[in-house]
Structure formats: structure tokens, C-alpha cells
């Protein structure tokens, strides 16, 4: 849930999604779901000539499982807050694991 919540805070920011097949798509993050499927608006494709099938496409739905990276604007990320949230999520996961093994 951590990264789902994290991406929700980045809605309407410009991001670049790099896929495992090396395509990079830049656009405005419009939506994300629990699988980290991503919807981008007003897209532009890095190396457009290599991927002609995307030249008449204006928005994309990218399946989470094919994503390698999402390049984010650093100024949109509150890193101390993110680290705290990570620790909280980790301790929740640890206590859950404990409950189920006791």
C-alpha cells in the first residue's frame, strides 16, 4: 500500500515511465491503482521514431508489471516523510508476520 499511496500524491505531476522493453514514455500522471498500473496523459515518447505505433496515441494505460522505473520530479517527493512511512509500513509488516507465526 505504501507505493500506491505514494503515487497517489504524485497525481498531476510530470513523470517518465521506463518500461522493461526500454520504451520511455513521458506524461502527466493521471491515475494509479493497487497493482501500480499507471495512466499518463499528454504523452511524448523518447526516441519517437523507434516506436511509431505510439505517435497517434494521446494517453496510455501502462500495466504495472511491465514497468522498470518511474523517473520522478525530486521536488515533488518529501523524502523524510517517505522514510517515516517506510519504517511504519515495515513495522506493520513485521507485526503481521509475528501474529501469523505465533
Amino acid at each position: 500500500m505504501l507505493f500506491f499511496s505514494f503515487f497517489k500524491t504524485l497525481v498531476n505531476h510530470e513523470v517518465t515511465v521506463e518500461l522493461k522493453n526500454d520504451i520511455s514514455v513521458r506524461g502527466t500522471l493521471k491515475s494509479v491503482d493497487q497493482y501500480l498500473n499507471i495512466k499518463l496523459d499528454d504523452i511524448s515518447v523518447v526516441e519517437e521514431m523507434k516506436y511509431p505505433h505510439l505517435s497517434s496515441v494521446k494517453n496510455v494505460f501502462i500495466r504495472g508489471s511491465v514497468v522498470r522505473y518511474v523517473h520522478l520530479p525530486a521536488n515533488a517527493v518529501d523524502t523524510p516523510l517517505l522514510e517515516d512511512a517506510t519504517r511504519r509500513e515495515a513495522s506493520q509488516a513485521a507485526s503481521k508476520a509475528k501474529q501469523s507465526s505465533s
Binding site: 518500461l19 520504451i23 504523452i43 496515441v57 494521446k58 496510455v60
Partner: peptide
């Protein structure tokens, strides 16, 4: 679904 990489609306 698992075979889909990306889908886009055609302008």
C-alpha cells in the same frame, strides 16, 4: 491481461 504491456487511446 497479463500479455498486455501498454494500451493507448488513439487521437
Amino acid at each position: 491481461g497479463e500479455n498486455v504491456s501498454l494500451l493507448g487511446e488513439i487521437d
